[in-house]
C-alpha cells in the first residue's frame, strides 16, 4: 500500500488527481501506475488502466483477457471506479485492496459491485474477485485534500 501511495504522490506532483496503484503477484510487484488523465488528455487513463497498459506492453504471450491478472492483488489508494472495476473483473483479478471509497463512481461497493459478478456477467466473461476497503484510508484522503487545496487556491475566488 505504501508503494501505491508513492505512485499517488507522483500524480499529485504532476498536477493530476492523486490516485496510485501497484499490482502484486506472488509477492512481486509486477506493475504500477498513477492517474494520467490530464497528461494523456484522456479521462479513462486512471491509475489501474495505466498499470494494466504497462503489463500488456510488456507482452508475454498471456494476454488472454481472463488470465492477465490471474493470481494478482491490486493495491490502490482509492476505490476503483466502475470502468476500472469492470476491467479488473474481465482480467481475472484475484483481490483488490483500497484506501478510501469513491462515492461518485465506485465500482467495488460504493455505487456498483462489479467484483460480484452474477451469472449474467459471468456469461460474458466477468469474474468475481475479493475486495478489502479502508486500508490506509486516511493517507489516501490526505492526498486528495492536498490536491483540492491546491486546486482551490488556483481557482478564482467565487462570488458570494
Amino acid at each position: 500500500m505504501a508503494l501505491a501511495e508513492e505512485e499517488a504522490k507522483k500524480a499529485l506532483e504532476e498536477g493530476e488527481v492523486p490516485v496510485g496503484c501497484v499490482m502484486v503477484r506472488g509477492g512481486v510487484v509486477i506493475a504500477r501506475g498513477h492517474n494520467k488523465t490530464n497528461e494523456r488528455m484522456d479521462a479513462t487513463r486512471h491509475a489501474e488502466m495505466v498499470a494494466i497498459d504497462s503489463l500488456v506492453e510488456e507482452g508475454g504471450d498471456n494476454l488472454w483477457a481472463q488470465q492477465l491478472l490471474a493470481g494478482c492483488t491490486l493495491y490502490v489508494t482509492c476505490e476503483p471506479c466502475i470502468m476500472c472495476a469492470s476491467a479488473l473483473a474481465m482480467l481475472g483479478l484475484e483481490r483488490a485492496v483500497f484506501g478510501c471509497c469513491n462515492d461518485k463512481f465506485g465500482g467495488n461497493g460504493s455505487v456498483m459491485c462489479m467484483h460480484e459478478s452474477d451469472s449474467q456477467l459471468r456469461a460474458v466473461g466477468f469474474a468475481s474477485y475479493q475486495v478489502r476497503a479502508g486500508v490506509h484510508e486516511q493517507e489516501a484522503i490526505e492526498l486528495f485534500k492536498k490536491f483540492y487545496a491546491r486546486e482551490n487556491s488556483k481557482a478564482p475566488v467565487p462570488k458570494r
Binding site: M83, S86, A87
Partner: peptide
C-alpha cells in the same frame, strides 16, 4: 457497450 466502456463514456463526458 459493456459496463467498462459505458463508464468510460461517462468519464469522457
Amino acid at each position: 457497450p459493456c459496463p467498462m466502456c459505458a463508464m468510460a463514456l461517462v468519464h469522457s463526458r
